[in-house]
């Protein structure tokens, strides 16, 4: 995924929504013509739960394909990409923080992050420590991830997501369990890293928005 090519969604809708199509007529993303996500832009996607936020993230990450319509990524149709293409994209172009963070409970915070980082060696260990410090998690580096609170796990998940090169950053409700200060800190880190990568940022929210400046707000 070159940063120069936009993501274009055309008449897209999760397959499960098809029988109730009309419920999604107000959406600014589903069932729209040429919905573009431009390189370097930031988008905040707001919706009540059950509107398909996580589905959209999974489609953009190549984890699911149960949708109608078409999606263009990396200059080509998403459904023409092979699993190997997606693996390459996930390592080098698309960073994704799922809503449930996907941390491995038996591993420590640092091990969880290194598990991601070792694929590209994108960050050094001190850089990772600095990022953990920035979101107030520096003291927990050697703590097993399973022993952390949900909010703490969200912050560690965010740092792990940022430990790769990316031109698209997808954050699925990244601050749903964070207080204002932590939200602020997370937003600063996202801003800094996405600017460094000149990346498109797509953040979802059910009401508690990541405090990232300059976001175009879309309702799903």
């Amino acid at each position: 995924m070159r940063s120069a090519t936009p993501i274009i969604l055309n008449d897209m809708l999760p397959a499960v929504f098809i029988p109730e199509k009309r419920l999604h007529s107000d959406s600014e993303i589903w069932l729209t013509e040429d919905r573009e996500f431009l390189p370097g832009h930031r988008y905040m996607i707001r919706a009540e739960s059950g509107k398909g936020k996580s589905s959209l993230c999974a489609y953009l990450y190549g984890a699911r394909t149960d949708y109608a319509g078409t999606m263009t990524v990396a200059g080509g149709k998403a459904d023409s990409l092979s699993k190997n293409d997606w693996i390459k994209l996930r390592r080098e172009s698309i960073a994704y923080l799922p809503q449930e963070t996907g941390l491995f409970a038996p591993l420590t915070v640092m091990e969880n992050i290194l598990l991601k980082n070792r694929m590209t060696d994108c960050k050094t260990k001190p850089q990772i420590m600095a990022m953990l410090e920035a979101v107030g998690m520096g003291a927990f580096a050697d703590r097993p991830a399973g022993k952390l609170s949900i909010g703490q796990q969200q912050r560690v998940g965010l740092v792990r997501t940022l430990c790769q090169p990316f031109s698209l950053l997808i954050l699925d409700e990244p601050v749903s369990h964070l207080d204002d200060n932590a939200n602020q800190a997370a937003a600063r880190l996202v801003e800094q890293e996405s600017e460094r990568n000149n990346a498109t940022v797509i953040v979802t929210s059910v009401g508690n928005d990541l405090k990232l400046p300059g976001c175009e707000i879309l309702s799903l």
Binding site: Y61, I87, R90, P98, K116, M119, Q164
Partner: peptide, 13 residues
Amino acid sequence: PTLAGLINLGYSP
């Protein structure tokens, strides 16, 4: 779940 998590991180099957 572990394998799915790793694939989600970018590990190839």
